[in-house]
């Protein structure tokens, strides 16, 4: 039981949780503050993961230049997605971003691209440059049921530092005149246009900045693990949306707390059900079905949230972000 609980609690600070939180902060900017329906945050994460890891493995770049490559690729991707769609109705952005994310996934996972992207197997072992910067002395650090190596601690610390940085950045932005324009666009872009603001340019800026958050999330996501093309499907994007809506789309802190709650609960339900099946308490499920149940729970949570608490846990009911 301690193990299950420890596992669930550990998801509060895992680098993966931080990565999802950061990706959700990006969507908060896109959707919660600008009203852009980005259904392809997975592609920005994939750009981060692949941009970084290919730079290291294929081009032999160091850590920082590799991060630079990912950033440039992310900005390019935002323009690629934004140019055809930001002048169109919002549903076009949704379909194009979701399609682009799938296209990207197909391309990186094709066997023909294997020498560069690793194909369906993805990439690993590109994090030496990152861990080389680790100031924490080598060793095992034990707390309660957890046992961290110095690199685990480093990854956790850096991940949350990055998340904090971007959360503060967004908080500053949305309280500035820039944020005012962005929120105006969310409410009614024609009104903002009639006041002399270049709406298209602002939407693009928002797409780029939120996309960059997704890209950094993508790098955090793969630093402690490996790059697996299968991870960047639509499910990833929908998870991030669930996290965003859980915390509240028009908030900054909501994405972070949303990610923590999401992963802890998912871990807890999964482990409890698994254990139940293992020791025979739960007889109507098999181990394979436990996975399906968890996905179903996410789906149910998403539906209920959007219908009954669209502003999320932290959102202001008055600042409802859904326009009709």
């Amino acid at each position: 039981m301690d193990l299950i609980l420890g596992n669930a609690i550990s998801w509060l600070f895992q680098p993966i949780t931080a990565a999802y939180a950061l990706a959700a902060i990006g969507i908060a900017l896109h959707f919660g503050f600008t009203g852009l329906l980005n259904f392809g945050q997975a592609v920005f994460m994939a750009v981060g993961a692949y941009g970084f890891s290919i730079s290291v493995k294929f081009f032999g770049l160091g850590f920082w230049p590799a991060v630079g490559v990912a950033v440039i690729a992310s900005i390019a991707m935002a323009f690629l997605l934004g140019i055809p769609t930001l002048r169109l109705r919002s549903d076009y952005l949704a379909i194009v971003t979701i399609a682009a994310a799938e296209v990207f996934r197909f391309i990186v996972s094709t066997t023909s691209a294997q020498p560069v992207t690793g194909g369906p197997q993805g990439l690993n072992q590109y994090s030496e440059g990152f861990y080389a910067m680790n100031p924490i002395p080598v060793g095992h650090y034990k707390f309660w049921v957890w046992d961290f190596k110095q690199d685990d601690l480093f990854a956790i610390a850096v991940s949350w530092l990055v998340v904090t940085f971007f959360a503060v950045l967004l908080a500053i932005l949305i309280r500035s005149p820039w944020g005012r324009v962005i929120k105006g666009i969310r409410e009614d872009e024609d009104a903002v246009r009639s006041l002399g603001k270049n709406v298209y340019s602002y939407k693009m800026q928002s797409l780029v900045v939120g996309g960059l958050m997704g890209t950094f999330a993508g790098i955090l996501f793969v630093l402690p693990t490996s790059v697996q093309p299968g991870n960047y499907g639509t499910t990833l994007t929908f998870y991030i949306w669930t996290i965003l809506l859980l915390g509240g789309a028009s908030t900054v802190i909501g994405s972070i707390v949303g990610a923590m709650i999401f992963w802890s609960l998912l871990s807890l339900t999964g482990d409890l059900l698994s254990t139940g099946v293992d020791n025979g308490t739960i007889t109507f499920l098999t181990q394979n079905q436990v996975g399906a149940i968890r996905f179903m729970l996410v789906g149910v949570a998403l539906m209920l949230l959007v219908i009954f608490r669209p502003q999320g846990i932290f959102g202001n009911k008055k600042e409802l972000y859904f326009n009709a």
């Binding site: 929120k183 105006g184 409410e187 024609d190 009104a191 903002v192 009639s194 008055k318 409802l320 972000y321």
Partner: peptide, 10 residues
């Protein structure tokens, strides 16, 4: 605008 475009949530 004919249909007023006040930005309601700000």
């Amino acid at each position: 605008f004919q249909l007023t475009k006040s930005l309601n949530m700000i």
